[in-house]
Design a protein around this nucleic acid. Sequence first.
DNA 1: CGTCACGTTGACCCGTTTCAATATTGGTGG
DNA 2: CCACCAATATTGAAACGGGTCAACGTGACG
Lengths: 268, 268
Amino acid sequence: MYSMLDLHQRTSPLQWLLIAVAQKWVATLVCDMKLDLKAKRITQDPLADISPWDTLNWHSRQILNDMSKVITFRKETVSEHRLFIVLSGVMAVRRELSDGRWTFSTLFKAGDIIDTERHERIHQGKLMALNSVDVMLVTSETFRQCLTTTPDINRVYSQVMRILAERARDHITDLACKTPTELVASVLFEFKRWPQSIQINKSDTVVLPISRRNIAHYLGIKPETISRVFNKLETQQLLQVPLADHVIMLDAPKIRQIANGGHPRGQG
Amino acid sequence: MYSMLDLHQRTSPLQWLLIAVAQKWVATLVCDMKLDLKAKRITQDPLADISPWDTLNWHSRQILNDMSKVITFRKETVSEHRLFIVLSGVMAVRRELSDGRWTFSTLFKAGDIIDTERHERIHQGKLMALNSVDVMLVTSETFRQCLTTTPDINRVYSQVMRILAERARDHITDLACKTPTELVASVLFEFKRWPQSIQINKSDTVVLPISRRNIAHYLGIKPETISRVFNKLETQQLLQVPLADHVIMLDAPKIRQIANGGHPRGQG
DNA sequence: CGTCACGTTGACCCGTTTCAATATTGGTGG
DNA sequence: CCACCAATATTGAAACGGGTCAACGTGACG
């Protein structure tokens, strides 16, 4: 940049050309630097793009970033940490019965905060990464203190916790009354709302973020049943399954209707 | 009291008798007054006896009491309030599907805080009293502000919220993998942990705090199934059901084992 | 005494699980 | 690039479990 200013002092036609070329080159260089800076800023402030943490003011995010570090769980990893924010991927609480049956009681996606520190009771289940998962690790004491000192963070924290409680109640409702067909229809819409890792322009395409086997464990049914449900819905022209993890909703309203209880027992 | 002192000034045998009678009368009167005072204190500080709110210091409880009022929901009442602490009785979130099926997704007992204020989504289900329920009503703004200004209250609040989240995950696990027999066994222990309205000296007796019909809706099964399960467990000498809402555990360890997954499909 | 809600019992049957076999996918290394 | 393996997904057949429905018993209440 300084050399460019120097060039300006003594101008000749050739030099003008050189200057023009140099300017262009420098411009692209600066542009690249800006992009690089932006990329760097994003990696340093990963919450900026994740709802609802993007509603934090810059200062609050700065506090959070300063007290935390970003780490990655590889697929199938069990986390010993019990307090962090999910940045990408899917984590789950795996809970087991004594004879080996188990379920994913909760799924956590980007933006969710996982706060399952032990209180009096011991067994809470394992925290597992179903994908490669980026998380933002915070230390318990600092974070708890920060919740009392920074109302902005407390606001978002309690908002997320209430959304999670609401999702849990949704899930309970599903498990308690829905038939497998309705369960699958519901979970399609649940995944549809999630931030898709692969951006699909077709808005009616849902990318299943986890394997069907894991979906089955989340819904409390068997993988075979999920397969049969997809078959049935496909023959009814309600959806298409071009790939194992891609579902195209052909008749979203009808699927929505099924998800809300439109397929009780005794309707084939 | 003053008149009694007056009597003391001029003593005669008859007066002594009168004094004695009067003293006794006054004593019982004072005693009654003390009881009354104590009752009044309890009604003024209802959190003093309810875990985990009893761990609050006196000052914090005073703050909570000052900002709130105690009201009673009668049985079957639907509450429009969405933020309060349960003092006695059982409340539930009733959620429905479009075709009439419904479940109690969450049960709230004494000590639980109900904080289901709406965020972006609309339908969260109805808050219902399954009993006569005393609650401590707080105004949202005051309470939220208080959470930021009083760490003591914030501590208990987040403790309760985490316990509730944990209970939700328990419930999800139950619904997702357990057979009806295991569900019923589980719910017996859940109720066993609750503060019993009627104190039973026999520690192995569980008083069902809600009707079997409602238990069925909570567990996502039918009342008929619950009845059959009790029959089966009774013929296996594991428990006794002297009254419809009293269950005596004859073999608590075995029932515990069943609750944790000791009765999968295919075991009769 | 009638009504109503709740709980119980029995018979039947649909649907999900179970089990087994096969097809498909994805990853690894030659 | 292909072969190979493991994990996952699919398909079929059979069995059992809990849902459904109907009828009856019971207790609370006016």
